[in-house]
Amino acid sequence: MFGLTTHLQNKRRKERRVSFLLGCLTLCLVLPIAFIVGVLLFKGLPAICWEFLAADPIRGMTAGGIFPAIIGTIYLVLLSLLFCVPIGVIAAVYLSEYAADNWFTRAINLAIVNLAGVPSIVHALFGLGAFVLFLKFGTSLLAASATLAVMNLPVVITATRESLEAVPRQFREACWNLGATRWQAIRYVVLPNSLPGILTGVIFAVSRAAGETAPILFTGAVFYKAELPQSILDQCMALSMHLFTLSTQVVGVPEAFPYGTALVLVGIVFAVNTLSIALRFYFRTHRKW
């Protein structure tokens, strides 16, 4: 009896030890984030001022600000959303509402998985081959955002599909029973009720599009361009590209500059992500069923 108790106690102790160890591993993940954000804040914050945000870069990018890069990133993101959100949402509608359970649907699923896994530089090659050269967009805002859209399509499809599938099937059946067509049920009941999930997915796509560099490298972003893009066939600057340039290609940049740029980029990405998380919590507590 006594032996059994100590045996059990040993087991418990071992369990606690392993649990503690795994907990530490998990905590390990917080450290790099905290460290990186800390350093960025510490070194980047001094650079952030009105001029830095609102002025053009001057003297070979060693002075001035990052205004065109911010605007360029915003253009890129919005334009890419314009492409990938409608197509992605409708594709998800097809997969969740119409597709039968057969080889064809499996093929589409595999394609989505693969599209999500294609390296970003291969997306860049595709963008260069398809949009810049074949469709003759040239290196432009249009080609770059189309490339970003292709990259983000799986993100939008997956998020939308999950939230469509979270709407209970009885709602659809109730609509059909009332003589609503498939599309009417989707349009008036399923889509409105999965909007929160779709929104979260879209916001996530925004944060990805804002941070990506490789796909826009050869399709539309440039190192330096003083004026803002006038049309979608113009080239533009982008924050991510600017950070890459500042930290690898330009000599004689004051240290605060790349830090400030990184801080702005990370700030935008985090803000967008926080918004998405907050929305998710809000909608979770305000469900309609």
Partner: peptide
Amino acid sequence: EALILICGLSAIILVLGIFIFV
């Protein structure tokens, strides 16, 4: 429904497109 099917195919088209263009 036809429009929805076309968008549903987008992923396959794009994966093939990436392969073909590269």
